[in-house]
Structures are given as structure tokens and as C-alpha cells.
Design a protein around this nucleic acid. Structure first.
Length: 327
DNA sequence: TGCATTTGACCCTT
DNA sequence: AAGGGTCAAATGCA
């Protein structure tokens, strides 16, 4: 056998991460339960956390779990890359490595195996500093797509990027696709202080899709996995409350015009489904039941479903990743 | 003056 | 070949 890359340590790492994910999901479920109780009995619950705090906890748990999943998948991709490179002792050519050296301009550096996930949000804000490096008009799309890289690309070598585009179906919303995970300091989890202080921004985004394996940007309709996503302001620190619109100086005046008057909305939580369920079309009954629930029941269901999935189907084992075509 | 954004060119992927 | 992603010079702003 060729698999000599310390399988035992890999298993223990995966198991550890699995436990971390479970822990986060359970925490989130507990917070959602408390939230439900709080909303059913708004009086006489002195001493318990506020709705906002509980909701923030729920969102934080989702975000933490997603973050752990990301890092696990990244580890796996890196591991597989190592395995692939070991065939004859020489590294596998990196995309673009042996291609034109002509100045390097426009060189396509996008990582094919980079983790991607998309959120729909009212704001572009998150807890990272981004720098815009491009904007393109996209075919059949009314709105241009903006390209951002992590501000710490050069000082810390962080390779995270994101693409922001106004949602075609709902111009009040922004579709943000994150590609790659931050390796710089100052992750959202590292600075929780903003969570309690800003109660509207995190309310306004939720995860549309999460992709372990390739960098395809999912369609808006593909709500296979949905959950709230934490967003914290830091991106363009401005004092003006309209900074989201005015201070970004996007060249297309239509891009942000509708965002000036956006109303915070209560996120609709969609069922959490793992990718393995994508082809399952027998969800009609479950979906009907689900759609009749309150948002808070849905939230709880999400955590329960996520917990079950992680407990039974998703152990970060080899087989899960072997199903994916990795280069 | 230094940093961020804009924008057209270049190059990669499909 | 078309569309999309990235680069870097030009430009704007504090």
C-alpha cells in the first residue's frame, strides 16, 4: 500500500474536527431552543440572554461549523495533492506553472480545488479587510461582478478572495461568493466583539451554497444547503452610515442604488442538506412539513438535521472525498 | 505621498 | 472563440 501518510493521525484529526463541529451545532441548537422559549414566553425570562444574543450565538455556531468544515476540506485537498505528487517522486504541475511566462499579466491563478461558498446578503460586510482588484460585466447579467482579495494577500500570504454581485432576482440582495479560506489573522471568530454590537447586519445574510470540491459558482436557485452566516462590519470602515453604498465608489450607479434603503429582514432558514442529498427528489413531504414550521422551528430542525448528518454521514472519511473528482 | 479603486488588457477555462 | 478571472497602470482621494 502506498498510503503511508500517518493514517492514524489523520483519523484522530478528523475525529477531533468532527467533535468540534458537533459541539458547535449542539451549541447552536441549544441557543435556538432558548430563543424559541424566549419568544414563546417573552415575559418572565429575565436573566436569560436576549433574542439578539441568542440569535448571534446561533449564527456563530453555524459559522464556526462551516469554518471547521472548510479547514477540514482544505486539509484534505492539501493531503490529496501530496498523495498525487508522490507517484514518481515529482510534484504534479500546478495549473499555469508551465504556461506562458509572458509578463505574468492576467495569469490565471484561481485554485481549482479552492473551497467556495456563496451567501446572499444585504451587505458586503464581513469581518475581513478586502481590497477590490477588478470588476467585470457578466454575460446575461444586469449587474457587474466585483472581485475582492484579502488585504493581507501580500503581508500574510492570505489567498482568500470573494466575488460580489447583485442578485438578479432580488436587486436588494448581494450574492457573495467566497473562494478559499483566510489564512491571515483576524478571522471572524477572532473578533466576536462586533456580534453583540451590530444586530442587523448578521440578520441579513444566509448561506446559499457550499462547495468542497471545485470553484463553481452555484445558481441562486440551488438552495441545497442554507444557513445564516455571520457578517461583521470591518471591510470599509467609514463613519457614514451610507458607506455601504456611497463610499464604495462602484462605477455602476445601478449596482448599489437599491441598497440605500434596505430594510433588515428576518432570514428564512432553509433545510440543511448535505451534498449527498442533492439528487434526492423525494423530499416533497418533508419540505411541506418544513414549510409549515415557524422560523424558529426551522432553525432547530436545521441544527438537528446538521447534527444527524455529521453524526452519521459525514465523518470526513476518505470515501466522502474520494467521490469527488480532484485534480 | 501613499493607498485604494477603476479600468482595459491579458490570459485561462470551457 | 467566448466568457470570465486577474493584473497592473492610471486615477482618485485623504
Amino acid at each position: 500500500m502506498n498510503n503511508t501518510l500517518c493514517p492514524e493521525s489523520e483519523i484522530s484529526i478528523s475525529a477531533k474536527k468532527n467533535r468540534m463541529i458537533m459541539k458547535e451545532l449542539v451549541k447552536g441548537q441549544e441557543s435556538a431552543t432558548q430563543l424559541k422559549v424566549l419568544l414563546e414566553k417573552p415575559f418572565g425570562s429575565e436573566g436569560s440572554l436576549s433574542c439578539q444574543e441568542l440569535t448571534a450565538n446561533v449564527l456563530r455556531s453555524f459559522t464556526q461549523a462551516i469554518s471547521i468544515i472548510n479547514s477540514s476540506s482544505a486539509d484534505e485537498v492539501a493531503h490529496r495533492s501530496l498523495l498525487n505528487s508522490g507517484q514518481n517522486g515529482s510534484p504534479v504541475a500546478v495549473s499555469g506553472e508551465n504556461r506562458s511566462q509572458k509578463g505574468g499579466r492576467g495569469r490565471y491563478n484561481r485554485r481549482k480545488n479552492a473551497l467556495t461558498w456563496t451567501i446572499l446578503s444585504c451587505t458586503t460586510d464581513d469581518n475581513h479587510a478586502w481590497r477590490k482588484y477588478g470588476q467585470k460585466r457578466i454575460l446575461n447579467s444586469e449587474f457587474p461582478r466585483s472581485y475582492f482579495r484579502c488585504s493581507h494577500k501580500y503581508d500574510q500570504g492570505c489567498r482568500a478572495i470573494k466575488q460580489v454581485q447583485v442578485d438578479q432576482e432580488n436587486p436588494n440582495m448581494l450574492q457573495t461568493t467566497y473562494i478559499g479560506i483566510h489564512t491571515c489573522n483576524g478571522t471572524p471568530m477572532a473578533t466576536h466583539s462586533a456580534i453583540g454590537s451590530s444586530s442587523t447586519e448578521w440578520e441579513s445574510s444566509y448561506l446559499l451554497n457550499f462547495d468542497h470540491h471545485d470553484s463553481k459558482v452555484p445558481n441562486v436557485q440551488d438552495h441545497h444547503i442554507s444557513s445564516p452566516n455571520l457578517t461583521i462590519k470591518q471591510e470599509f470602515p467609514k463613519e457614514d452610515t451610507h458607506s455601504d453604498v456611497a463610499d464604495h465608489k462602484y462605477s455602476d450607479p445601478n449596482l448599489w442604488s437599491d441598497l440605500k434603503d434596505f430594510q433588515p429582514f428576518k432570514p428564512t432558514i432553509m433545510p440543511f442538506r448535505m451534498e449527498s442529498d442533492n439528487n434526492n427528489n423525494n423530499n416533497t413531504n418533508a419540505d411541506n412539513v418544513y414549510s409549515s414550521c415557524t422560523d424558529y422551528q426551522r432553525l432547530n430542525m436545521n441544527f438537528e438535521m446538521a447534527s444527524v448528518h455529521f453524526d452519521t454521514d459525514f465523518h470526513f472519511d476518505e470515501s466522502h472525498f474520494d467521490e469527488s473528482p480532484l485534480l
